[in-house]
Design a protein around this nucleic acid. Sequence first.
DNA 1: CCGCGGATACATCTGCAGGCGGATGCGAGG
DNA 2: CCTCGCATCCGCCTGCAGATGTATCCGCGG
Lengths: 211, 211
Amino acid sequence: MIRVVLVDDQALFRAGVRMLLASQPDLDVVGEAGDGREAVSLVQRTRPDVVLMDIRMPVMDGLAATAEILAQPDPPRIVMLTTFDLDEAAARAIRQGASGFLLKDADPEFLLAAIRTVHAGSSVIAASATRELFEHFAEDPKPVPVQFSALTEREREIFALAARGLSNSEIAAREYLSEATVKTHISRILTKLTLRDRVQLVVFAFEHGLA
Amino acid sequence: MIRVVLVDDQALFRAGVRMLLASQPDLDVVGEAGDGREAVSLVQRTRPDVVLMDIRMPVMDGLAATAEILAQPDPPRIVMLTTFDLDEAAARAIRQGASGFLLKDADPEFLLAAIRTVHAGSSVIAASATRELFEHFAEDPKPVPVQFSALTEREREIFALAARGLSNSEIAAREYLSEATVKTHISRILTKLTLRDRVQLVVFAFEHGLA
DNA sequence: CCGCGGATACATCTGCAGGCGGATGCGAGG
DNA sequence: CCTCGCATCCGCCTGCAGATGTATCCGCGG
């Protein structure tokens, strides 16, 4: 039996979900809360397995409530619910340790599957959000300019060190080289990448995910 | 009835999964493949609802196969499987459009729930991977150091320009200042942020999401 | 075998970066 | 009013950065 707590400020929405879950033999709604503050104390009392938590709520929003609940010992799994497709909040919720993120207008059977999935230990993310999430957070697949491949192995090493902010003397010391040699490498690198100085080299490196 | 295709180079693993799915009334294994190349043609012939796809395979790996399959019209949902916790491949798979990412040593009931979840239209990500994924791709919530707030309004402007790779003379020209003045600002900025030179300033800016 | 091109290493020169000192303007407080 | 602190602006000096010119080693083709 999976013990579930519902947290949402809309009583009607809670009622709908409660009806849905009641039809399932392995699911049991053990409590409901209308805001984040209530949710925290409710979870402490009822010790559920899974919490369905709306993000947008009065008094204390779903994010803050999630943080407090997860800070407790042996916390339940938490699934975030939202009306809108995706906002920053969803990503933050997942980072905070929520196990799922779903849209409120999802199919009922979909919600049921999600509850069982997170209870089993995995995470669930609404399909529509997944793509967006990754596009939003994952930096693009590194469109490394062609010119970069013109660098020799050695030059790439020097490049990496310079990109981290090391001075010529520091690079020289680390690579057992003369400072003059390092300068030569830097010059060739700058020429090949058509950059003016090492400052722009650093900018280049970060903008292309090479540092 | 959810029609499933198994793709894995280990016949024993496929056998185990087939047994598991056979015990479920709503799941039907309609085909198996031992490498990516086979998988693509198998999917074209059998038109399954869900594909369980190993990442590491001979001939054509799971990523390439996923890309080809998803390029077809009305493609099935694809769940990636892997032995190891997480590598770059997993993230790429999700970005390519895979609907799930699971570990091979997951609980059986867990795999079943995942299949039903992705079939319903959502995405599933192994819990152990979720945290890592987000830490890996989402840059941290910009922990801007306290020292940065010590900067003057003017200094912040100069900082932003220097962070883009502009030289002192360029900044001077753009701000209608003497080059000497720009240098003073830079010096004060470097002191306040305890940085050595403008190169490290650029590194600092990028690492804290200020550029 | 020898010549040639590329990669790597070093020395020397010019210019800019950054440290240092100092000036001005402005608001707060004695 | 005077002073103190702070922000903004400017000139001078030292050192590093980057361009230029070479030298050595290696592989490849004539």
